[in-house]
Nucleic acid binder design. Sequence first.
DNA 1: CCAGGCTAAACAAG
DNA 2: CTTGTTTAGCCTGG
Length: 539
Amino acid sequence: MTGRGRPRRAKSPDTKSANSKTIPEEVSLQNGTAKERKPKAQKKEESPLQDRTTEHFIVEISRQQSATTDNKKAPVRCTKAKKKTEQTAEEIRKTQPETPEDPLKATKVKRCVGKKATSPEEAAEETTKTQPETPKDPLKSIKVKGCVGKARSPGHITETPKETPRACVPPVRCGDREHPVLHTTLENLKIKRDERSDAAEVVNKIVKAIVEHLKEKSQSFKEIEPPLRTGSYYENLKISNPDEFDVMLPVPVDRVNVAPFGDDGAFYSVELKRGKSPLEKFQKTGGTLSASEMLKEFRDEVKKSVKQFTEWEVTKKKKGCPAVTLLTKYLPIPISLDIVLSIVVQSSWPPFTKEGIKIDGWLGTKVKQQYKRLPYYLVPKYEGMGTVECDGVLAKDVWRVSFSHVEKLMLLNHGSEKTCCEREGERCCRKDCLKLLKHLLSLLKEEDSSLTKFCSYHVKTTLLHACCARTKDADWRASSLSRCFLLLLGDFVEHLERGVLLNFFIPTQNLLSGPGLKKCRSLAQRIEAERDNGFPIFK
DNA sequence: CCAGGCTAAACAAG
DNA sequence: CTTGTTTAGCCTGG
């Protein structure tokens, strides 16, 4: 039915232009924060990110060639005919026989292009409504692509076609024959293109509206920088459903004094140095920039800006949580969107990061230096009771450091060779391993409510540490998925057994101190049971 | 501010 | 399996 030439998805032109092509806000971020760090002169060969190769010539030439050939086949556009998503609830709400359990799910007209009905619920949906509690949100990031010319080396010389299965098949060690279930599981975790498209449309629309409102209608937040799309969706790590989005809205500050709050280096109190700032009003008598007051007003402004969007609701405030969470249920897949207030600090990273981000062997020292020249972010997050006081500062007025922008950069550019996972390069399984482990954790959380304190950030951190331990792309060959996944699983279990998983950027912070050793060990046992039985939970 | 190019990933076909 | 197409996201240059 679905012929290749037929438009499987069509959108009305206005929708299109409004959402997909350009997100204008992006541009001003560059102007605002990034330009200084990314001098124009730093091109191609000169970029520190580039010089791990000696093939610049070939690379550059081949780039140009392929660009010109590509051009020819470009603009074959489909005709757009889709109804806008501005539909009201009633319009959208057609009965969805496939999923009777959810009355809000809907079948859309545009989807009727002969696609066979997908099964009720693929494999297992992850429902990563990850707990707000402890360290969920350090998953945000900035964009700032490392460098300009990506290498696509045609001369990428592979002495042997290594990935092809050998003629003689060793009994045990051959790739992942041991665990074919991992591959099918991964397959089921993929996000459907149409669902992604629908979700992106509604999310982009509301984010745009919020940003416009804050810039034009609010005093305190009129200087916000373009949204930083962070978290697993924007790292291409989202599994199962496009149902969770994280967007950080950064407020620039000129100069600030930042002082540790507590002893693990993750939380800070902030003082504005200069007078002139829209943020003055959030200062307490001691000069502290009050996270809670700023978040309160931010939340009010976000509420105002989504008021007219009846399909979105604002969820209740959660203690210590830096996000204003929006929900929409007017799509087959309900979406939660975290709008996270943050302040951008341009100066050098806190001293507590000194021993962190040990990526020298994996991504290289120059990449690390580049990352460390980026700003860092602070989000209005605290732990425990907001009334706890320390040096005259209340916990609810402190900020937690966030390096989500760097996390995103590392995950999108994760190879020790820069051609890793590119068309001409070797494919690796780092992200697949992470997806699988995330999935495993969320399945375990579904069946055991005592695991709420564990979250996908624990898994992500485990992967980052693993990448520093097994630094070469050859350690993560796509053909060795099972072995790599089992090693990663082993890492995770080790952390759990010891009850120690250090924040990748702030090694003085133990991310497992929240859950506690007892819960850690019980999770470790549960995971080992799955492993030793061939992952029945995936079946 | 926008148009256009590029990439990763999903998806379709051979 | 390989190859090509489509799409959202991202970046750049005008």
